[in-house]
Amino acid sequence: MGTNNDYIIYVENIVKKYDNGRTVALDHCDLKINQGQVVAIIGSSGSGKSTMLRSLNLLEMPTSGKIFFKGTELTSKKIDVDSHRQKMGMVFQHFNLFPHMTVLENITMAPVILKIQTKQEAEKSAMKLLERVGLTEKANVYPNMLSGGQKQRIAIVRALAMEPEVMLFDEPTSALDPEMVGEVLDVMKELAADGMTMIVVTHEMGFAREVADEIVFMSEGRIIEKGTPKQIFENPKNQRTKNFIDKVL
């Protein structure tokens, strides 16, 4: 065996059912992700992309199947999921910043509470991260004072403050006004260039094509086709993939 050790994330045959089995959100999916890889998950709405992503850090517990993170089975009953979640940052469509905390508190809260850094250390690294996304002057404001694009960049920084080994993005630009999409994608591109392992659910086909190493196309809870952007966008094998690509391009 040992195969699951070769990958940073290894998903084996997962199934997720809702409503006592009436809804099958994930239908026997496998996924293997290498260290430093950028994977884009595409597919129409309701195809199970979010469920797949949220299963990776066990925000959703799969009904069956196994998920390994660096060789450790997360789906095992014995595991302390909280400590593994620290290593998997997540960015949400609707930002989910904490409205009762300033930007700086949003970023430093988790590392301080989880005793990964002292308050001073956390603030220092938070300011460095804010500088990277060009938002140092927003450190002491509350999230309601920020634009959508700024909120999402802060949300990315908040996740990065935990020094994760994987970043999960669930449609990070879908709730943004069009003119703000670029600033968030730029941050993500930089992150990819720095070698971060990223799994991105997205409708931004341009981004997927340019940045992703692998594209995963999902439909009705199944992974229909995987491949390089070139394969998927220019030469899809499956008819459903073809239809989807024709529709979105």
Binding site: L59, D82, Q86, N96, F98, L114, A155, R158
Partner: peptide
């Protein structure tokens, strides 16, 4: 809010 907090490892 709960999901964001849990995803940070809390």
């Amino acid at each position: 809010q709960m999901e964001a907090a849990r995803s940070l490892g809390l």
